[in-house]
Write a protein that binds this DNA or RNA. Structure first.
Length: 284
DNA sequence: TTAACTGTTGATAC
DNA sequence: AGTATCAACAGTTA
């Protein structure tokens, strides 16, 4: 479920702990999860950890870098064996040992620390890629919502010929960078916009509310450590986030609308096959 | 038991 | 160019 906030939190932590480390070995436990030649990055060091949309880039000292997409269930968990074992289950006190059943890749460093890539559903991947390939990958995405480039005017232009529901449009990566199913519903609720409304029919004023809401929701989610359901998202230390407690509508079908003096219930509908939560009384 | 569901995105056909 | 549908995979829930 990692969306921009979750990926950003992982990035920040990895940037703290990985920079300067030299890769000693890349263990590929599941071929499908790794693309390119792992041997080519052996002996290089991590220069920095960056993010674009939901992609994480590990910048390396050699000609190639590592690019990671967590997709639905990917995790990047850093373990320093000399300290406490990471990968704890959010609902349990005991700590799960890594590698686990869903560990697909292990990046080992010369100082004996390790980075585990876990991915239950095997949609995610890590690949070796040079600067040009990564640029190409990045260029497919629209501006991240937490940047200055993401404005009401930009959205207005991009949505001009889109007749699909606004909720669906928010999930298109080439338009909006970093938004997924959870935060799309949350931001539309915050902006008081009906998720079913055709994207090209939103007024500039509505788009202003939407852009503001997206930025705000993402900021708060980062502050709260991201959203964790069923332990599928864990940060780089193997810990769950807290934003699931702050969600206003996502996953809250049948609960009363969180707006003060609204008596309606949160509804759940499908928009292009994806669950969408909203209040039909507040959002129009 | 079976079907439907789940955080993402890319390919394909119209 | 934009839209609808399906697919990748593995697990949980009705």
């Amino acid at each position: 479920m990692p969306e921009l906030p979750e990926v950003e939190i992982v990035r920040q932590r990895l940037d703290q702990v990985l920079v300067g480390k030299e890769i000693s070995e890349v263990k590929v436990l599941r071929q499908k999860s790794f693309q390119g030649e792992a041997s080519r990055i052996k002996g290089t060091r991590i220069e920095s950890v960056e993010r674009r949309a939901k992609l994480i880039r590990l910048r390396l000292t050699g000609p190639d870098d590592l690019l990671v997409h967590l997709k639905m269930t990917g995790q990047l968990i850093f373990v320093d064996g000399s300290k406490k074992v990471g990968g704890g289950h959010p609902t349990d006190d005991w700590c799960e040992q890594l590698p686990g059943d869903h560990t697909r890749i292990i990046v080992k460093f010369v100082d004996q620390t390790q980075l585990f890539f876990n991915d239950l559903r095997v949609f995610g991947w890590i690949k070796v890629a040079d600067d040009q390939a990564i640029r190409q990958e990045f260029d497919k995405y629209g501006p991240d919502v937490n940047t200055a480039d993401f404005t009401p005017e930009y959205l207005h232009k991009k949505l001009a010929r889109r007749t699909i529901p606004i909720k669906q449009a928010l999930l298109i990566g080439s338009i909006v960078g970093g938004i997924g199913n959870i935060y799309a519903s949350e931001a539309l609720f915050e902006a008081r916009i009906d998720p079913r409304q055709p994207a090209n029919e939103l007024s500039l004023q509505e788009l202003e509310r939407l852009v503001k809401a997206l930025k705000q929701v993402i900021k708060q989610a980062i502050k709260s450590g991201g959203t964790t359901f069923d332990g599928s998202y864990l940060n780089a230390d193997g810990q769950a986030g807290n934003y699931q407690e702050k969600l206003k509508v996502y996953g809250r079908e049948g609960e009363s609308c969180p707006s003060s003096d609204c008596q309606a219930q949160v509804e759940k509908i499908k928009i292009s096959g994806r669950s969408t939560f909203f209040c039909s009384s507040c959002q129009e």
